[in-house]
Design a protein around this nucleic acid. Structure first.
Lengths: 247, 247
DNA sequence: TATTATAACATGTAATAACAAGTATATTTT
DNA sequence: AAAATATACTTGTTATTACATGTTATAATA
């Protein structure tokens, strides 16, 4: 099935379709690291689109770090650095269990609410749409380590009501609800614990916590889950590797 | 001085000039958080450029997290966090300057010491080998944001003595000493500020700080530089994206 | 042979045009 | 007055065209 035909069916913008095709090729290894990819003109011919459309796809790939460009030389596949690192989108148990830790969770609250402005924005909700809020405390070897507050659009959140929420939610989403998870945007910040968090974690108000915000999308880039995770500072360390030799 | 005139002088692409103007306005607070900015048409008229140029500037600002858009509604300034998106193996200036921030540094101390066990291990030093310790305070728009403590093997550290250490060290290493930097291993942690750090950063003892440890290697995997960076919690946010679809 | 133009091709920037699609407001209809 | 509709916005997508600028390989020249 060609791109042109698919356009009518999927209603996906052309540049996104092209981006996906190229991305798959890069990840599959059709272009090895630092190998030159077809030029923009060649892609125009191949996909039968204008240069602006090709470039929009390339720009997306560039900002994802999958390619880099050199004026006059061409466009190159970069070493997929995301993959080399242990940076996948895991839930708490998924990450901890293989390391021999005992994990558990306690459900604090589960309700339909009118979320704040930033949650609405992140989840792409209209002004009157509501969200489902889930608050849980996570334990590691029976010590509380984090307070997790998750927001779902109601269409997903309602399906979670009958489920056992004392376990990881990501496997629920993937296995029970059949949602294929894709990218997640994460930010880390050091903050002081407020009264509620301090209470749940058994620490003093004002103690340092690692404040993690995570916006998880499905494979079609629709936002699925927006979370605040408040980790006890002494229980969380985030490690990663970067490579200056890459563009 | 109009944009058009500046073009001839600065030889900067129009969209970058526009981007800088808008960015300054946002950081200065001309648009409060979540306030609607002028529409694309209005910007076209104001800057006397085509829509494609305006959009290119906006796209850059969007990917830096300074604005967000809503189809049919408009373009909005997002909350101005002092530091957005610090990709680290950049030095501090490298990361901040292109974003239009004013950076500076103050050298606190520079000496040869017998380092602690963990520094020796990280740098691969024998028991009797010494190291050079550099302590600096970094400023962003004249506000202190971090206390950086760096350790170098003496063979490298001694070459740094005559250099100006109120600037980034990484460019010194690469350009002056001819060391090609490679991978860096980094960890992030939320901690409480001790007395020394609190003093330098002008915050209360016990305030949350982002504690960053960074071990930088050259391209041949030899350890070059081990650092502790203590960032004021309200001035540092680390962002990244991960992809569950990848292995 | 070594050097210098030059042509061919790569990405970068910019203008103009048109239509799609989401949102808000004013207008008409019920 | 309430509901439906029109219309005047907004950003989103795409095509066409043109020239600028950087790179490479080939051909002309010293």
């Amino acid at each position: 099935m060609s791109l042109v035909e698919r356009k009518k069916i999927s209603h996906q913008p052309l540049y996104l379709q092209i981006k996906e095709v190229l991305k798959e090729q890069i990840l599959k290894g059709d272009f090895s690291p630092y190998e030159r990819m077809p030029s923009e003109s060649e892609m125009m011919a191949k996909f039968k689109v204008s240069r602006i459309t090709v470039r929009q796809a390339l720009k997306d790939l560039h900002s994802e770090g999958l390619i880099f460009t050199a004026q006059g030389k061409g466009t190159f596949a970069s070493k997929p650095k995301a993959m080399q690192e242990v940076e996948y989108l895991e839930g708490f148990e998924e990450a901890m269990n293989p390391k021999g830790y005992e994990t558990s969770a306690r459900l604090i609250s589960l309700k339909e609410i009118n979320p704040g402005q930033s949650v609405k924005e992140q989840l792409g909700l209209s002004q009157k749409e509501k969200a489902v809020e889930i608050v849980r405390v996570r334990y590691l070897n029976r010590e509380p380590v984090s307070v997790d507050t998750s927001y779902f659009p109601v269409r997903i959140g309602h399906k979670l009501f009958p489920k056992n929420l004392e376990k990881d939610i990501f496997p629920l989403l993937e296995n029970d609800l059949g949602i294929a998870l894709g990218k997640a945007r994460i930010s880390l910040e050091a903050r002081a614990a407020d009264a509620a968090i301090a209470l749940h974690l058994g620490i003093e108000v004002g103690s340092p916590i690692m404040w993690v915000e995570r916006l998880t999308h499905d494979r079609d880039e629709n936002p699925i889950d927006y979370e605040y995770l408040a980790f006890r500072g002494d229980a969380y360390k985030y490690r990663f590797t970067i490579d200056r030799t890459l563009p």
